[in-house]
Structure formats: structure tokens, C-alpha cells
Design a protein around this nucleic acid. Sequence first.
DNA 1: CGATCCTTTGATATGTTTCAAGCTTAGTGG
DNA 2: CCACTAAGCTTGAAACATATCAAAGGATCG
Lengths: 247, 247
Amino acid sequence: MHTPTSPVLAPMVHKLASRSPLGPADTAALLALPYRLATRDPGTYLVREGDRADSCIVLLSGFAYRSKMTGDGDRQILSIHLQGDLVDLQNSLLEVADHNVQALTRVELAYISQEAILDVAAAYPAVTQAFWRDTLVDASVFREWILNVGQRDARQRISHLLCELALRQEAAGICEGPRFEWPMTQEQVGDATGLTNVHVNRTLQRLREDGLISLGSKSVTITNWQDLQDAGDFNSAYLHQCFALPA
Amino acid sequence: MHTPTSPVLAPMVHKLASRSPLGPADTAALLALPYRLATRDPGTYLVREGDRADSCIVLLSGFAYRSKMTGDGDRQILSIHLQGDLVDLQNSLLEVADHNVQALTRVELAYISQEAILDVAAAYPAVTQAFWRDTLVDASVFREWILNVGQRDARQRISHLLCELALRQEAAGICEGPRFEWPMTQEQVGDATGLTNVHVNRTLQRLREDGLISLGSKSVTITNWQDLQDAGDFNSAYLHQCFALPA
DNA sequence: CGATCCTTTGATATGTTTCAAGCTTAGTGG
DNA sequence: CCACTAAGCTTGAAACATATCAAAGGATCG
């Protein structure tokens, strides 16, 4: 747990290192990346579909989400992001963004130029792998969400979402025990699961009645982890959290 | 349209080059990759969830699909693959496969060792980018499928699937005009769209009645491309087919 | 030419949406 | 500190899209 030159990017390195082996030189190079800081309010668009992205955003604190809209104006949330996530490597390497990224809570961001990303990747093969792997894990999560929204019923979808967020917050080291932040409105939960806010409400009530969860303001406590996993048909393999977390 | 040392991998190179700029040296290196040929029958598993993949499969002809199963045994098809597609870069770089890949028709495959892939990527930066981009475009397609399955109704979902397959087959240069191969059973269409085979059947009938498509055996003809696009809320941007196709 | 897999059709059941209204909470300004 | 407001949550009743079940009709292929 040595203090590097720039601990600001530490959450990102922590996350990359949790799934891809990185040596001291690699992590040093990542921590030394030049960045620009920013803060954004809830709801702000960090990336808009159609944007020509030239820099890459790291989420330092708070929550964000990716989304896409249908022509009819219905929103689908594609993924939820937290501390340490590279929120638009996906977009920035494909020239023009094919989806939106929005702040869910107040967020702190680091902007890293695309050029700097590609440079450090070119100089350190392990870093290339780590970035690539990061985008592949994102893809794996997308696949699980297709399954979630395509084949599971309301109770399963919502339970599954809760399990994923719980595990990811735990891996990021930002929750105490079974309680974690859940700064989504029920409408947003609906957008993430392909349900209406009304049905989300009723389903959450039943999960509470059944003793699986208990809701606070902007937070959840999982009161029965095993049952919630079962209710959500949840298997964490798709998150690919394989490596032990190094210093 | 020069004939390279090994034209067998040409469909893959064609596809990579259609979205990422590749110089002559890059394409030559790709075409020179060592491979092992194989043929598989419809339904065969090319990759199984949980497999530890050590080589990477290129689809040379025929169709394949990725899928995942719920604990209840429901199958969700995650993507459809055709000529030139790198069918499991996703899996092979993440140690253990998180989804299945199955042959949809009889397929011809080239197996390339993961090692060879990483070597050629390390030696040619443009190749790294091309592979990376390929996985990113896959991810973009996954995102669109989440939207499709999460927010659109049956008619839109099926129309959207048809539009995607039409455009991709056209880009791969394997269809004559508005008619293209569609070797999926209605049950498989249901698995891809989160619907039942019965409902797929009824919806397809309506698309036919409305004059948008006409069905042959294992093929479709799009009789009204504009209306089908509208019916499917289809916008091709997510396919990222940006570069002109070089020789 | 039978057997199996696929498609089609009908009737009924169900999960989820829609609409509409009342309720709670948190934030804001007087 | 108390309205006041807006946003979010909760509830009920009715409508709808899609699922389920079951059976008959067509293909396709050894």
C-alpha cells in the first residue's frame, strides 16, 4: 500500500489490477497519466450519443450510467458505473459515441486524453492487456444484461441487478457489510431492467416482504444474501473478478 | 484484389479492415497467421460456458451464435455470427468462457492459437487496434440488443434483427440484393429476441401481410427496406461500419 | 415413406403496462 | 420554521401484449 505520485487515479488502477496482472512499472505508468479533474451534478450528460470523444473519462467517485434511447423516446440503461470505472473507453476508441453516459449522483471525474491512453498502452504491454480486458469484461456484463432482460421475470431482474451492484461495490471497497448505496429512482431501475416504475415498486415491495432486502434512502441492505442470489438467478462468474487484489 | 499467401483468412481480414485502417504489412501478417481448419455440424458447441479457451475461432463460412442459459434452462441468444467473424476473442482473452458459441448451420472454422494472436498484435500496432476495435464493436452490438430486448415490442425486435442481419451480410458481401440467408428456426428467433416461438410466428406473419418481408426456406427477402427499418426502429450506427472496404 | 423437426392455429392464462390519483419526502424561499 | 413545490413513491382498476398449452398441418431427410 505505497503512496504513489498521484493517488487520484488509484481507484482505476485498483480495478484494472483486480482482473489483469500488473507489475510495479505498469501501475506507476498508469498513476502517472496526466488528467484533468471535473465535478458534475446528477443527470448531467458526460457523453452524448453522436459525440466525437477525444478523451477518456475515469469515474473517481459517485455513480454514472450508460444509456440508449429508442426512437419512441424510451430509455434503456445499459450499465451502472462506480468508482474506478473507465466510463467510456468503449466510446472513445470508436470515433463516434453510440450511447450516452450520464451522472447518476454527483460525480468526480478525471479526463485523460485518448492519446495518453494509447501511449501508455503502447509502451506497456500489460497495460494494453488490462485496458482490453476491461472492455471485454464490460462486454461480458452486457451479455449478462441481455440475458437478464430477455429471459428473466421482474423479480429475477431486479434481484440480479441488486446482486451485481452489491458485489461490485464490495470489490471496489466502498461498502460496509451488506448495506450499500443505491442512488437510483425506481424509474431508473425500471429503465435498467426493462420494466415500468410501477412494476418495479410492486416487485421491490415483495422482495422486502419476503425478507430479502430492506430499503433505506438511497441505499439497500441485503438481509438474506443467499435467497437474493437465488431469486436473481445470480452467478458472479460474468464479472470476471478473478485476481486477488494486490497492494 | 491481390491473392495473398493464404486467402483462407481473407474474410476475417476483410471484416477487420472494414472498421480499422490496416496497411499492407498488417494484412499480410494477418493472412500469414497459422491456423487449423475444421468443419462442424449445426448445433455443435464450438465453445462451452466454463471452457478454458486456448485458441481463437474464425468463422470462414456458415452461421454461428453466442448464447447463455438461465438457471431455469431458458436460452438467450446474444449475437449471430457470419463469415469473417472472430467468434470468441471475447472468451479466449478472459481465461474462462462466460457463454456458449454454437454452430447454427454447418460451419467451416479456422482455429488460431491465442499465442499467435497476441504475437501478431504485439508486432503490429494497427492489428492490436483492429482486434480491440472488433471486440468494441461486438460490445456495441450487445448494447443495442439490450435496448432491443428491453424496450421494444415483438414487431420491432424481429424487424430490428432482420435489418441487422441484412446489413451485416451485405457488408460481408454474401447476399444478392434484398434476399439473404436466414437459417434460424422460429424458436431460435424467439431465443434471440426474448419471445416465444409461437409469438414469433404470429409476428412474422404480420410482417409478411404488411408487405415488409417475404420468407423462403432458410431465407428472407426484404420487400420494403424503408418500412422494415421503421418497423424495427433501426439505425445502423451501432454497427460501426465506417471505413470503406479496401481490396 | 415414415419419423422427426418445424410451423401454424386456437383458446386461455398471466405478467406487465397503462392510467389516474393520492401520498410521502426532500428541498426552497419567504 | 413553516408553507409550498416538485419529485418520487404507493395504490387500485382496467387493458394489453405476450406466454402457455395443446393439437394439427407441413417440411425435410434418411
